[in-house]
C-alpha cells in the first residue's frame, strides 16, 4: 500500500530524514516512533505530499506521490498533530466540503457523517462553528473528515492527543476495522503502550535514520516496546 524507498529530506544543511526505507502492506497498522525532532512528522508530511523531498521515492498503491500527487491524494487521508481546521466553517460545512472534494454522494455522506459523528458523540455540535470547538472536538472532526471517503491509506500524526479516553478507544477500534477491510494506517505516537497493543508493525527512527523496523514481535522480542525504545535511543 505504501512504499517509502531511500527517502532523504534536508532542511538547509540539516538532514531531517536520512535514507529511510519501509513498506506498509494492506491490512497493517504501522506505528512510527521516535523522540521529538527525530524526523517522524517530516516523513509523514512527505508521504502525504505536504513536503517535497530531496531523494528517494514514495508510492501509494503503486502510484508515485512525486509523479501523480492527485491520484495519491485520492487514496489517502491525513490527520496532522495539530488539527487546524477552517474556523470560519461549521462542523457540518467542513465535512460537506471534504465530501464534495472527494465526490461522495449525498446519501453516502449523510450515512457516514451520522455514523461517525455518533461514534465520537459530536453530532449535535456539527451545527456550531469550528472556532467554538475544543481541541479534542477539532481532533474528532478531523478524524471524521479523514474516514469520510474510505481512504486506502490513513496517515496520522499523534492521533490520540487531545482525545478523551472513550474517543481514543473508539479510534483504536476504527483503525483496526479499517485495516481489516484492507486499508492501511501509518501513524506516529509517543504512547508506546498504545503502539504495542495496536500496531502490527513498528518502526523506530532516530536522528532521521530508521534504526529498527518490522513486526511487533521482531522489534520488541520478549521485552516491552518501551524498554526496547529506551535502549535504542540511548
Amino acid at each position: 500500500m505504501l512504499r517509502i524507498e531511500h527517502l532523504t529530506k534536508k532542511y538547509g544543511e540539516k538532514l531531517a530524514v536520512d535514507d529511510l526505507t519501509l513498506e506498509i502492506a494492506p491490512g497493517e497498522i504501522y506505528g512510527f516512533i521516535g523522540h521529538n525532532g527525530a524526523g517522524k512528522t517530516t516523513t509523514l508530511k512527505s508521504v502525504v505530499g505536504i513536503l517535497k523531498f530531496d531523494a528517494g521515492e514514495i508510492t501509494i498503491d503503486g502510484v508515485s506521490i512525486k509523479k501523480d500527487p492527485l491520484a495519491c491524494k485520492q487514496k489517502l487521508a491525513y490527520i496532522p498533530d495539530n488539527p487546524d481546521l477552517y474556523d470560519f466553517m461549521k462542523g457540518i460545512e467542513y465535512l460537506n466540503f471534504i465530501a464534495d472534494v472527494f465526490g461522495i454522494s449525498p446519501e453516502a455522506r449523510k450515512e457516514k457523517i451520522a455514523t461517525l459523528s455518533g461514534v465520537f458523540e459530536i453530532t449535535e455540535n456539527l451545527a456550531q462553528p469550528i472556532s467554538s470547538y475544543s481541541h479534542g472536538m477539532k481532533q474528532k472532526l478531523a478524524i471524521i473528515g479523514a474516514f469520510l471517503h474510505d481512504p486506502k491509506l490513513i496517515v496520522m500524526d499523534e492521533p490520540f492527543v487531545g482525545l478523551d479516553p472513550k474517543a481514543a478507544h473508539e479510534l483504536k477500534g476504527m483503525m483496526r476495522e479499517h485495516c481489516d477491510r484492507g486499508g492501511a494506517i501509518f501513524f506516529s505516537t509517543h504512547v508506546l503502550e498504545v503502539a504495542e497493543k495496536l500496531c502490527d508493525k513498528v518502526a523506530i527512527i532516530k536522528e532521521g535514520r530508521l534504526i529498527r523496523s518490522g513486526s511487533m514481535e521482531e522489534v520488541k522480542g520478549d521485552e516491552s516496546l518501551e524498554s526496547v525504545f529506551l535502549e535504542l535511543e540511548d
Binding site: I92, F97, A99, G103, S105, K110, E124, S132
Partner: peptide, 19 residues
C-alpha cells in the same frame, strides 16, 4: 452565542470547484 443543534439533512453534492 446560542448553541445551535445540528439536525440531520441531506446535503446537495457539489463539484470540487464549487466546494
Amino acid at each position: 452565542e446560542k448553541k445551535a443543534i445540528y439536525h440531520e439533512t441531506t446535503a446537495r453534492k457539489g463539484s470540487v470547484s464549487s466546494a
